[in-house]
Design a binder for these strands. Structure first.
Lengths: 181, 181
DNA sequence: ACATTTGTACAGTAAAAACTGTACAATCCA
DNA sequence: TGGATTGTACAGTTTTTACTGTACAAATGT
């Protein structure tokens, strides 16, 4: 993994890194990142220099194809950036080390989209229910519709709350409340 | 799915529910809940009465075994509660409808554990590095160790920040900042 | 005590996801 | 322009996860 001679010290350093990388990789599913891609991230993080796909492939003993897709999803998550270096033909990647930013961006993107979708679905359902309500005379049916209506409205309120929480992060206001360390 | 006659109205209600349930189920992976279990949750949510495993099995056309494991993971996530009803032998389940509470509990549990683990791993790595540093004279190695040390310390700071964010939710202070709707 | 019902462990199967190797388009250099 | 290199689409394979059916233990009612 590292280009120096395999003295005891370098080996030990490698081992320590691997141990740590292993741990954080396992927990990256919270960010929607698979363990494998988490290991990839960790590897790039501790690399002395920006890495090429071939470097990664060698470091993790995995196919270049996997590295390509892995690096793509890490890039999309805003955790890895492609960098340019004079005279180097291969693509070079390094980690984007502003974890606060990465966290916020991943968190905001994923939740925002889900909430929007859910909110819209709830609104659609509500208008369906309204129509149904007007078209029926069956009392037990109107009761059920009424119940569903209340459930959906509670849902919409909850989504609005979540939306505001997300905004707290999106705008960076969260950092006034909980300052960066 | 519903025990009433299949009049047009009831069918339409069912369809509307299914549409909504489908949508929210797809987004429940954010809570660490699979789409299938999300559909199960939605089905229980809109059920007129608490449901038995057999009810669910019939409603979703899936095995009772799956319902059993599904309901268990929903229960563990604090999204579904077992309720008791006089004269009913089968277990009955209904949704826990305080979504704010469910959200906080899921969010806090998952992240807290991950952060603790990562923090510990970082601390372990740091003490390893300290030992390595003292044992070596190779200057390029000490440089690398120094770099890793800084990275790990940044990581620990970040984890501490996340920890405080989690606490904001855990204590309920978040609701002073972003009031429930 | 016995027969019946209910929930779940477990083993096996089906479906999904992760990973690889090949083939090729795009890019770069001469 | 042609030859070499690099990244990725795609098809095929392996591994993992999701799901089912059977079998059985625990609980219930008689």
């Amino acid at each position: 993994m590292c280009q120096q001679q395999n003295s005891n010290g370098w080996q030990a350093l490698d081992k320590t890194r691997h141990q740590f990388i292993s741990t954080i990789a396992q927990n990256m599913d919270l960010y929607g990142i698979t363990e494998t891609n988490g290991r990839l991230y960790g590897t790039i993080l501790f690399s002395e220099f920006p890495m090429t796909l071939d470097d990664m492939s060698q470091a993790l003993a995995m196919s270049k194809t996997s590295m390509s897709t892995g690096v793509r999803s890490l890039t999309e998550a805003g955790m890895v950036t492609r960098v340019w270096e004079k005279g180097v033909r291969k693509d070079l990647y390094q980690t984007d080390d502003d974890w606060y930013k990465s966290f916020v961006s991943i968190f905001v993107n994923r939740w925002r989209e889900a909430i929007d979708t859910n909110k819209k679905a709830a609104a659609d359902a509500l208008s369906e229910l309204k129509m149904l309500y007007e078209e029926t005379t069956d009392e037990s049916l109107t009761d059920e519709i009424e119940k569903d209506r209340r459930t959906l409205e509670r849902a919409i309120n909850y989504y609005s709350w979540l939306d505001e929480v997300i905004t707290l992060f999106e705008t960076g206001d969260i950092f006034n409340l909980v300052p960066k360390k």
